[in-house]
Computed example of a mutant assay.
Amino acid sequence: MQTIKIAVQKSGRLNEDSLKILKDCGVSIDNGRDQLRAQARNFPLEVFYLRNGDIPQYLRDGVVDLAIIGENVLFEKGPDLEVVEKLGFSKCRVSLAVPKSAAYDGPLSLQGKRIATSYPNTLAHFLEGHGIEAETHIINGSVEIAPNIGLADAVCDIVSSGSTLFKNNLREVDVIMKSEAVLAVSPKIGGAQREILEQLRFRIQSVLKARGNRYVLMNVPNAQLDAIIDLLPGMRSPTVLPLAEPGWSSVHTVISQDRFWEVLDEVKKAGAEGILVCPIEKMVL
């Protein structure tokens, strides 16, 4: 039986989130402690646990067919590789930071400066785009310490909350790129594997749609029914069921998280009561 090989980060937050989305897609993986490969029990998929920075080359060489990887790593080491799905988790950004006491009036402030980074290609692309010449120091890990020890005037590194910058007396001054986990594909993927990929993408899309929406039930007086329905951004139209109490109906709909609180405030003001909000496990359109 044909299987598809997928690479995920060996350890860390991206590893946990990657395995979670596969689990939410109904894929059961038999992975033991320190295993580098694991087979799914109920889906034609084999997982490879790899170092994040090595994944683009494994994709390029066709050792794996797919990978869940951060956009930032792909931009740095595999800009030629195809992305077929953005996954919406492990969000971060690649940013420039300078000491809190340093002046910064835009990218041109970096002219002639020393910049420490683990993302030399990403930094070079940014500098070139702004016509800036600067000295790059490549550091793997603990980039934030470079200005404190006199090695650099600024840093270019991955930022999530910004707490690491704060602890090292740095401030974020420019965002080079925003990143999230993506599903990337090898240029050497075969036809049979491409079919399995589409099955997996269908499941992933269903999970992501569910994560981005909530199922909402509310009790509505019939006199206000039309007005409240007009406020609801349902998938097609909301479901309306009569309640045992005369003059009232139960309205069921799906609301995206982006508009969730805004819509709830509006329907409550319009007369909706007993509003119940439920998570959605899967959502197939």
Rank of each mutant, 00 (worst) to 15 (best):
P120A: 06
P120M: 08
N121C: 08
T122S: 14
L123S: 11
L123K: 05
F126N: 05
F126L: 13
L127C: 04
L127A: 05
E128R: 09
G129W: 14
G131K: 11
I132C: 01
E133Q: 07
E133M: 02
A134H: 02
A134I: 02
T136P: 08
H137V: 15
I138M: 09
I138N: 15
I138S: 13
I138T: 14
I139C: 01
I139W: 04
N140A: 09
G141H: 11
G141A: 06
G141S: 09
S142Q: 13
S142F: 12
V143M: 04
E144T: 07
E144C: 03
I145P: 02
A146D: 01
A146V: 02
A146H: 04
A146R: 07
P147A: 01
P147R: 00
N148A: 09
N148C: 01
N148R: 12
N148L: 10
N148F: 00
L151Q: 09
A152G: 13
D153T: 05
A154K: 08
A154F: 04
C156T: 13
C156D: 07
S161M: 06
S161I: 06
T164M: 07
T164Q: 10
T164I: 15
L165D: 00
L165Y: 02
L165F: 07
F166G: 00
F166D: 12
F166K: 13
F166R: 06
K167F: 03
K167V: 03
K167M: 05
N168W: 02
N168P: 03
N168S: 03
N169G: 10
L170G: 02
R171Y: 03
E172S: 12
V173S: 12
I176F: 08
M177F: 10
